[in-house]
Design a protein around this nucleic acid. Structure first.
Lengths: 284, 284
DNA sequence: TTGCTCCTCACGTCACGTGAGGTGGC
DNA sequence: TTGCTCCTCACGTCACGTGAGGTGGC
């Protein structure tokens, strides 16, 4: 502004940095992106020279940074004459993001604490990892097995598979079992067998089979708590428990029937690969 | 492990990614860093082939990622046979970091809310930005002005400056005023003038001056709330207020006397540049 | 001449996302 | 031949931190 004033109290970058408590590289970077340029640059040496009253602007920058705005936003706020409303908008956006982030981090914290507690009590690492995922709708052939013993179910499932193969119906995914809680008795389950099939080939189904097998749409679930484990289906109880405590720790509610997905059932029982899924929803 | 099993149910990368709900690029990246490699790679096409039972490991990875561990830590945990204690250590570290981060974010949130409230009430952006910084110890010549009017102080300070110049004592920084609350009366202040000087030249001070000027160490302060503003010192009250509300919003307590630093006092009053500092501490 | 402060590249960060350009099987 | 899926680079992200290699003033 007033060139005749220059030189009277210009500060070299290190002096200015020390007063303002910022790093040299930060000042150089702000210069580079045009956020905060030195009052003048010595034409022969290239030295950046700052005047003390530039502190006002720099402090404004630092304060806005403290609020979590990024440098691009700050450039806009300071140089592009953004109105008070625009600042309001940025702050509201930042506030919303921050609130969500805090929530997530608190959930993470609870999870970590639960793990630590588990390790202290059991002296071991966790056996079953739980992940959240989305599952998509599937067209399946369904059937009620009416029985709940593992052996019987498994036998029944093999029979159905054989039948489908004979009928040249194309199987498109792993076999599901869905455990519906009985309306009368909480402790008994109605077990539904569901085999994903290719819709176009499923019409081969002859009438007598239709009595026991019917086509239905297995709905997708946006948040499914899932755990995959290898081993005998007898160990399934542990997986259920892991899912239960996981839901509790993370503040989720179980909102639908459990699904058991038989990812691999060849070879020894110990080699079986099974996924247990529970539809969940965040508690309000 | 069992090469004769290959090919029976290998999944291409997209199929596996869909089941596991991860992105293609994530899978390729995990492969690259050696965290999670496909069960096999087709030698002619280079296609990555995954077996369904790799889900167990991938889910373990995803679960650990959910806890906020980075991929390097996860590699160590899964592949370098780290003990339960090491996992404990990582989780404790993560927990501590997370707790601190949440605290900081909550402070940020409070600050944002205060700003938003301010804008709504005043319809304007904030005038005084407050930043936290550290100030270092200074060797100063001090004197009690004994008066509190701005004009008188300013006049007095100029006289002292002139004197120092005559005595060839080197001034090394901006003039400070320190406002000590009087022990008897809370509403009156004892004003201390403090001028940073070069220790080696300060010994020129003759005896008669020593009655009013004495050398002392102005202590450093690790957390100083500071606001810099340009303008007439009459507007100083606003700056005080800004600092006060800032301290309240952010949960800081004022733990020492206020300092006024005269960064620039040339030209018009409106051009003066002044910094107000308060030593603060986080409330417990 | 030796230090000191400053300068300008260039590269690394962390976990991928996003093209560009090319190949193999239907 | 046309699409589709896969591949491998290479670059960008965000706000700097950290050398490397060089210059100017005492």
């Amino acid at each position: 502004m007033q060139p005749e004033e220059e030189g009277e109290s210009m500060l070299k970058i290190r002096e200015f940095a020390e007063i303002a408590q910022v790093s040299l590289s930060a000042l150089r970077y702000y210069d580079e992106i045009g956020l905060f340029k030195p009052a003048s640059v010595d034409p022969t040496t290239g030295y950046r020279l700052y005047s003390i009253d530039q502190l006002v602007r720099l402090n404004r920058i630092l304060a806005l940074k403290e609020l979590g705005l990024d440098l691009n936003q700050i450039v806009q706020l300071l140089d592009e004459g953004v109105s008070a409303e625009a600042l309001q908008g940025m702050l509201r956006l930042r506030k919303a993001r921050l609130q969500q982030q805090i929530e997530e981090e608190q959930a993470q914290l609870a999870q970590i604490e639960a793990r630590l507690k588990y390790i202290e009590q059991e002296g071991r690492k966790l056996a079953h990892e739980v992940v959240l995922k989305e599952v998509y709708p599937l067209t399946v052939l369904r059937s009620w097995t009416g029985v709940s013993g593992f052996q019987a179910n498994s036998h029944y499932a093999r029979n159905v598979h054989d039948l489908l193969q004979q009928l040249r119906i194309k199987i498109t995914g792993p076999t599901h079992y869905i455990y519906h809680q009985s309306a009368e008795n909480e402790d008994t389950f109605l077990v539904e067998l569901a085999i994903p099939v290719d819709t176009s080939t499923a019409n081969h189904l002859p009438a007598p089979s239709r009595e026991r097998l019917s086509l239905r749409e297995l709905p997708g679930v946006s948040t499914m708590a899932s755990t995959v484990y290898r081993g005998s289906p007898h160990a399934i109880l542990e997986a259920y428990q892991a899912l239960g405590t996981w839901a509790e720790v993370n503040g989720y509610q179980i909102v639908g029937p459990c699904r058991k997905v038989c990812l691999s059932w060849e070879g020894e029982l110990q080699e079986y690969l099974t996924e247990i899924q529970y539809p969940v929803e965040k508690e309000p």
